[in-house]
Amino acid sequence: MHDPFLLLNLPRGFDLDDCVLRGALIKASLDWHPDRFALASEQERQRAEAKMAELNEAYAQLRDPLQRAEILLSLAGFPLGEGSDHTSSPEFLMEMMEWKEKAAEHEKGDNPEQLHVFCQQLQQEIDQRVEKLRDGFRAWQKADYCPGTVAPLRALLTEAIYLQRTLDSLQEATQHHHD
């Protein structure tokens, strides 16, 4: 499997400082920078370009905590999987339904202040889960990635992804409005 941690020569883990990540990208990019291939053959130049694209992609994936968490779970052999969700509780899905209902109202409404407050609330819900993920991944690492403790991590991440998608699509839709 494609491992962005390996590509950027970083230790696998959820805790990842932005500066460290940025540094790792720069270091890994040195050998592949287009300037070094100005006089190289077309084939070599293309290879370097592809490598740079791969490194940038790895950087973008690791920078986003939710994608980082998803990658860590996949690498450990517990991918979230696509399609129907068999992880979330009906209670959470009900709660999600309410968030979506409110998001739909804010999308139609014309009150930028209320919209802003609502987006902040959603962001808080996401942040809370990211914090819990941080603790969870630390505990999981300490437990030598014992499969027994992976379920709550998957549930937390799944919830955070729902909330993030809702926030993203609301922001996308409302930006459009005000342009």
């Binding site: 696509e82 969700d85 899905l93 799944t158 992804i161 729902y162 699509s169």
Partner: peptide, 11 residues
């Protein structure tokens, strides 16, 4: 019945 798909955010 209540179901969802996190990747597309559908509920």
């Amino acid at each position: 019945g209540i179901v969802g798909a996190p990747e597309c955010g559908d509920v």
